[in-house]
Amino acid sequence: MPERLGPRFDLAFTLNGTPVGMATTTATTLADLLRERRDGRGTKLACERAVCGACTVLIDDVPRASCSVFAFEVADSDVRTVEGLGTGGEPSAVQAAFADNSAFQCGFCTAGMILLTEALLARDPDPDDAMIRDWISSNICRCTGYALILEAVREAARRKREAGE
């Protein structure tokens, strides 16, 4: 557990569509804040240097490495994590495409990869292969060799377009 350094303050932001308020400290990172909540451990920490992207979350729709964002930075922001994807227990189109394409192995990078893909497809519903590669290259997957992930992203884009999302 990380230490609670710095002055305490009350933080308010939107987490997966729900307004939340909690007491925290100025030196707490967003990743630690999320993970200490019992329901927030889908956000994974690996390098803790904003390199690998395992801890990617969306802050106002922008993918960010939550290991390197202070909790105070998200005051009044809209934060989305893997726990907030899908509706009514059904996975999102991106989650479903990752599941169907075996676009994961150990699963440690998967939440980050999925959130990255959600952000990409929100900006560009029909990205070309170069764009997909470019985006996926911001995160590290040590298991898959990436090809299955790239296919899952294409598949997710296709499904979302067909569903008119």
Partner: peptide, 21 residues
């Protein structure tokens, strides 16, 4: 058959439990 892996639902939902959790 390449049906969804047995761990697919948990892993894409961020619910899979690792020792870090």
């Amino acid at each position: 058959r390449s049906d969804r892996r047995i761990d697919a639902a948990e892993k894409v939902a961020g619910r899979a439990v690792y020792t870090v959790d």
